[in-house]
Design a protein around this nucleic acid. Structure first.
Lengths: 212, 212
DNA sequence: ATGTGATTGAACTTATCAGTTCAGTTGGGC
DNA sequence: GCCCAACTGAACTGATAAGTTCAATCACAT
């Protein structure tokens, strides 16, 4: 009775191919400019097959966005998780987290997700809950949680962990947006390393164990 | 022979009304979903009149974006200019700049400009030069320039002013994006004050006169 | 008053695209 | 070897909107 589609035994699951293709096409053209025909072609499938799996362009968009958001969030959380085992020196651990977060952020799919969210926020307000509420804000919370624990252990000096986490993100995102010109320019690996190091430098000056 | 339209003496200039209306409608609906009919209605004008002033929807969009970008940039630059007369204590000066930049950033038109830029970047790559190149990046440069002078005067300790400026922006934009949930939520004045103060706190810890 | 150029509303052309229909094909499970 | 469900291609409907046309109107300058 649940609307769950029976596993398509025998044939490969085209649903995933369709959602992947949909995200690529939406990322390339935006929601309104993308046409289902092209998504079908990109997935190597006929148009009625698309409608067989997902019953409207809107659904197609929502599901593609949700999938992309879930994968981006998982990667971000994995990066933050590095702080579970900080080691004896905090700086390299923070730098590694920073570096991994930058990798997430400059990722092509992730940028596209961000662009599409901004673009369609007015038309699909509920995307905010899916992409932001279950994505970005969870990552910030996880980071704040890690920072709070480090503060409790006396290894950082943080009055407001949530704000510290937001600032940590800002120290990464601001400069990388600038260097990549909103993601339209490839940023060399070495520059990302520098960005991460500089962000951690500033962060530790403010929140390091010897901070004001 | 120059395509310059003679000043419409006697009648009010409808061109400006059309561009204003266009920006409002584009901001509300996005480029693809906005229709020229509606822009005309919003400007209190007939559709052929729109085409009499601006010969295509594309032009309409470009000019509306350019105008919005110019006004946003001017306001940002004015905020940064506050650092020309820093006074004897740097902290309140920086806080005032931070606070004004936050005001620019949470401004409705400014957010819309940003959203539209992100949204249509693929379709209108040249907007990057207009909005980013002559907007955001100029503001960052101006800020970097001010910071560099303060460093020369021994009032800050900054090795790379460009990066310091990017980080200053990041310390503001990151938290405010978070607090406003991408601009979908009104941030109370007092919270903006706190955000500005916290950003300056962190900034001065890293780049204050007594910094590492 | 009158001429001129901008403005208006309404209808029209053309193009694109979401979503559907259908007759025919395919390919794995039995 | 046959069945059945998924898949295919192609054609179709209906809606929406860009851009144009045109005859009628308006408001200022002289």
């Amino acid at each position: 009775m649940s609307g769950v589609r029976a596993a398509p035994r025998g044939r490969i699951d085209k649903r995933q191919a369709i959602l992947d293709a949909a995200f690529r096409v939406f990322a390339r053209q935006g929601y309104a400019n993308a046409c289902v025909q092209e998504i079908a072609a990109e997935a190597g499938v006929a148009k009625p097959t698309v409608y067989n799996h997902l019953d409207s362009k809107e659904r197609l968009f929502r599901e593609a966005m949700a999938a992309a958001a879930a994968s981006a969030t998982a990667r971000n959380l994995a990066a933050v998780d590095r702080l579970r085992a900080p080691g004896d020196d905090l700086r390299p651990a923070l730098q590694e987290v920073a570096r991994r977060l930058l990798d997430c952020y400059v990722d092509e799919r992730s940028r596209a997700l961000w662009r599409l969210l901004n673009a369609e926020l007015a038309a699909f307000p509920d995307l905010l809950d899916v992409v932001w509420g279950e994505g970005t804000s969870r990552v910030t919370e996880a980071l704040a949680d890690r920072l709070a624990r480090l503060a409790l252990a006396g290894r950082l000096t943080i009055a407001d962990p949530a704000r510290a986490a937001e600032q940590f993100s800002g120290l990464l995102m601001g400069p990388v947006d600038s260097r990549s010109r909103l993601g339209t320019r490839q940023v060399p690996e070495v520059e990302l390393d520098e960005l991460a190091a500089a962000a951690v430098e500033t962060f530790l000056a403010a929140f390091g164990p010897a901070a004001a």
